[in-house]
């Protein structure tokens, strides 16, 4: 199918983009990489009157250190997650997740900010912002604000973004020498949406885990931190008994929805298996 007719405006600045949205309201959509929005328009799941192209706004580009954070511009493409040295050094969990995001040609267009804004519960990057304790910078009609990833994802495709607001950057705390990370997902076909996926970031003192954040995707309406499992691991060393306890805790952390293709019990089982594997790898990476 083809999209319903719309008008197109290429914004040169954030201000222009916000102004255009403010004038048109709910009938306007920002477009960046468009790798999810264009199919949605083709299927007429959405039919905006105006597309505001934000990909030529220089302020939304670039990756740089800022204080204790890596500031990743919203327009950073998925392929840049693989090639950008600053990401490899200071946000290696994102680099580990990037090869699992769709296919190479999609990664050449899709943007980090767009993925987080869409908040697809089956997507890798939104879930990784939770594991990384990232902060999301938002520009809107009433000014700019920063919000923790923990407070950003609200429900299915619903975020703290208000109408007319735009993600400008994502701030990721710099990866430190005493930290370890792990990422993996299970999918039926390479590049397909995961049946279950998980990423984690731990702060360790030798074998002891001082802090850990574990985030799952494809397990419910939003990317999901598993705080019960995290609690069983914090303050302990990583041994098979602790790993089993964390796996058991998932039953309280996750409530996968009914689904014809993947029953909740199967998804929970896969989540336990994946968690066990990743914690095992975390232990080996000491």
């Amino acid at each position: 199918m083809k999209a319903r007719a719309f008008s197109y405006f290429r914004a040169a600045t954030i201000e222009q983009a916000l102004d255009a949205h403010a004038l048109v309201g709910d009938d306007a959509r920002f477009i960046a990489g468009g790798q999810s929005l264009v199919p949605a328009l083709s299927l007429r799941l959405q039919a905006p009157r105006l597309l505001i192209d934000i990909t030529h706004i220089g302020e939304l580009r670039g990756v740089r250190r800022e204080g204790g954070f890596l500031r990743i511009g919203a327009l950073t493409r998925h392929c840049e997650m693989l090639s950008e040295p600053l990401i490899a050094e200071f946000a290696p969990l994102l680099q580990a997740a990037a090869p699992f995001v769709a296919h190479p040609a999609i990664r050449n267009r899709g943007t980090f900010g767009g993925s987080v804004a869409l908040a697809d519960p089956a997507s890798e990057f939104p879930a990784m912002t939770l594991a990384l304790d990232a902060e999301i910078e938002i520009a809107g009609p009433s000014g700019s604000r920063r919000i923790k990833a923990d407070d950003f994802f609200i429900d299915l495709f619903e975020t703290a973004l208000q109408p007319g607001e735009l993600i400008t950057a994502i701030y990721v705390p710099l990866f430190k020498a005493d930290q370890r990370f792990a990422f993996d997902e299970m999918a039926r076909r390479r590049g397909d949406y995961a049946l279950v996926g998980c990423g984690m970031l731990a702060t360790c003192a030798g074998d002891r885990i001082n802090d850990i954040r574990i985030s799952f995707f494809s397990v419910g309406n939003t990317p999901t931190r598993v705080k019960g499992a995290e609690a069983t691991l914090i303050g302990s060393s990583l041994n098979s008994e602790r790993i089993a306890a964390a796996q058991a805790a998932l039953e309280g952390d996750l409530a996968p929805p009914e689904n014809d293709e993947v029953p909740p019990a199967m998804r929970l089982h896969l989540a336990r298996v994946l968690l066990g594997r990743l914690l095992g790898r975390l232990g080996e990476s000491a």
């Binding site: 290429r10 199919p39 083709s42 296919h103 040609a105």
Partner: peptide, 29 residues
């Protein structure tokens, strides 16, 4: 497929392979 699944429409845009069904011509201006 015209929804980015099949890859038959790949072209190079500024040197990188992209789906030409997943962008509007105006974006490529």
């Amino acid at each position: 497929c015209e929804m980015g699944a099949c890859g038959a429409c790949l072209v190079q845009l500024d040197g990188r392979a992209v789906h030409s069904c997943l962008m509007y011509a105006v974006q490529a201006d």
